[in-house]
Simulated scan of single mutants.
Amino acid sequence: MNGCFITGFPGFLASMLLKEMLKLYKECEFVLLVHPSQIEKAKDLAANRPNVRLFTGDITMAGLRLSPEQTDWLKNHITHVFHLAAVYDLAVPEQIAANINITGTRNINAFVKELPHLARYVYFSTAYVSGKRTGLIKEDELDAGQTFKNHYESTKFAAEKLVAELDGVPYTIIRPGVVVGHSKTGETIKFDGPYFIMRFLDKLRYVPVPYLGKSEALFNVVPFDYIIDATLCLAESDDAVNKVFHLTDPSPYESRKLYRMICEELIGKAPSWTIPPAVVEFMLSFSFFRRFFKVEKEALEYFRCACQYDAANTSKVLVKAGVQCPDFKDYVSSMVAYYKENRKDPEKLVYIK
């Protein structure tokens, strides 16, 4: 890699991706597209890096709000583009999601088409473009007439279609599952997704703990270090050109079992009874209960998602580089330990309405 353009900085995955790439590609020049509202934070994180440039811009605007001089420089130097900027909030309003996820991707697509030295365009989608589909979901499937659980899913689906329709652009589409902390250190930036389980259990440590229904649905979580390692492998593999990859757990646990493992690790006991999911959903329809348990209602859907994500393409490419997804049971202790140490950090808490 000679020149890399990364969106989404100083977001967590973009920051972790840059950190790893700085170790591997010491001669590479990095350009980070940073929204004006995030520029001071970005400066702090990228300080003292002579091969890192910060360009203030906006993916929702034509030309990315870059100057002609910046655009010319990028055309002469950029070989790889990593598009991570998106809105990931499950409760995001439709117009905001569409503006960032769809319009933003359309503008990045237009930008990459103007790069004469482009070797790869890596687009971060999500496994949940599958929406409400059930059963086996394959990597070469996208539009199966599915409906969606929220505007995040529907706009990421529409955005991925735009990337897949690009002609003459060497793209690679990444579809992660639910991303959690580092498999060794537990480090993460936000306590959402499975961390809502921990926030819920924090309120129940002195009473008999319930299972949340009897669902046998699989819950697909992946640590971010696997996402980073896999992404960098795919970004340079000729076998990944114009293909889609599920960065998901090939052997995910049932939601009920994953819930029990977290419960035992966090509060030292297993659930002993079952509460119907309809009751939980009803309770979380009231803001008082959502704020008390610190859980988003929208998160419940992902614990009863009755589908399995096939990752055959991913396995074929990553096995050559020795990259594989860790087993949840091997890193749940690190994940919980990090949560316990940082659960009162306001920067990591997701505000619940």
Rank of each mutant, 00 (worst) to 15 (best):
G3N: 02
G8W: 07
P10M: 02
F12W: 09
K23F: 11
K23I: 12
K23Q: 15
Y25R: 12
P36Y: 00
D44A: 14
L45W: 04
A47Q: 14
L54Q: 06
A62W: 03
L64D: 09
S67D: 01
S67M: 08
W73Y: 15
H77N: 15
F82K: 07
A98V: 11
N99F: 09
I108T: 06
N109I: 11
H117N: 12
V122G: 00
Y123S: 00
S130G: 04
T134N: 11
K138G: 05
K138N: 14
A144P: 03
Q146T: 10
T155H: 06
A164M: 13
L166S: 05
G168F: 08
P170Y: 10
G181W: 07
S183N: 04
G186F: 06
G193E: 08
I197S: 10
F200H: 07
L204P: 06
V207N: 10
L212N: 04
S215E: 11
A217I: 06
Y226D: 07
A230C: 03
E236R: 14
S237I: 10
T248S: 12
P252M: 01
E254M: 13
E254R: 15
R260T: 15
E264P: 08
L266E: 09
G268F: 02
S285L: 07
F293P: 00
Q324R: 15
K348C: 00
L349Y: 06
